Amino acid sequence: MKLAEISDDPKKCRDAEKLASNEFSSFEFILSLNIWHDIVHKINLVSKNLQSEDMRLDVAIANLKGLVSFFEKYRENGFTSSMIDAKELDNEMDIEPIFLIKRRIKRNRQFDDNPDTEREQQFPLKNYRTDYFLVLVDMVLSQLKIRFKQMELFESVFGFFV
């Protein structure tokens, strides 16, 4: 809003006002920020531990194992806790905690198309959970597991130094 007030360019003013009033003040955006904060905060804590000068390989593996365990639990319970946090923030910011129903794109069906009726009937909250939250957490988990396997391989090769 401050950018909209101080800018001389009318296009920048309109864009800034639109972002501040629509995109940045939506429940979806606040929830996304909460989810990203949880993910990045936890990864940052482990990353700082892994970068310490006296880090040992067995301790690094234990940290990664704990991180994988956290995200497996977060996949099950994290969405509801993020929703609660986002609703608290929305109350402070006077934003309604609702998901906007997006317009569905209609397309002509072909004779051999299978109707995707189950997918079409899902609620916006469920769509958000399956299309955004679970995809994001699953990507984080898969990357952590790949790195965890690499660290275990390094320990099997260089573990005798400990």
Results as ranks from 00 to 15, higher is better:
2 K>I: 14
5 E>P: 04
5 E>S: 13
8 D>L: 11
10 P>V: 10
10 P>F: 00
11 K>C: 09
12 K>V: 15
16 A>W: 04
19 L>M: 11
26 S>K: 13
34 N>S: 09
36 W>R: 13
37 H>D: 06
40 V>S: 10
52 S>I: 03
52 S>Y: 10
52 S>M: 08
53 E>Q: 13
53 E>V: 07
53 E>F: 03
54 D>L: 06
56 R>S: 07
57 L>K: 08
59 V>F: 07
61 I>F: 05
68 V>A: 01
69 S>Y: 10
71 F>V: 05
71 F>C: 03
72 E>V: 15
72 E>N: 12
74 Y>W: 07
75 R>I: 06
87 K>L: 02
88 E>M: 09
88 E>Q: 14
91 N>P: 00
92 E>Y: 01
93 M>E: 12
98 I>D: 05
100 L>M: 11
101 I>T: 12
103 R>K: 15
103 R>A: 13
103 R>M: 08
108 N>P: 14
113 D>Y: 01
114 N>Y: 06
114 N>G: 06
115 P>Q: 12
117 T>H: 05
117 T>M: 14
118 E>W: 00
119 R>Y: 06
121 Q>N: 14
125 L>G: 05
127 N>F: 02
132 Y>S: 01
134 L>Y: 03
134 L>Q: 06
140 V>C: 09
142 S>D: 08
142 S>R: 05
143 Q>V: 01
143 Q>E: 13
145 K>I: 11
147 R>N: 15
150 Q>F: 06
152 E>W: 05
152 E>F: 00
155 E>T: 00
155 E>Q: 14
156 S>Q: 13
157 V>W: 03
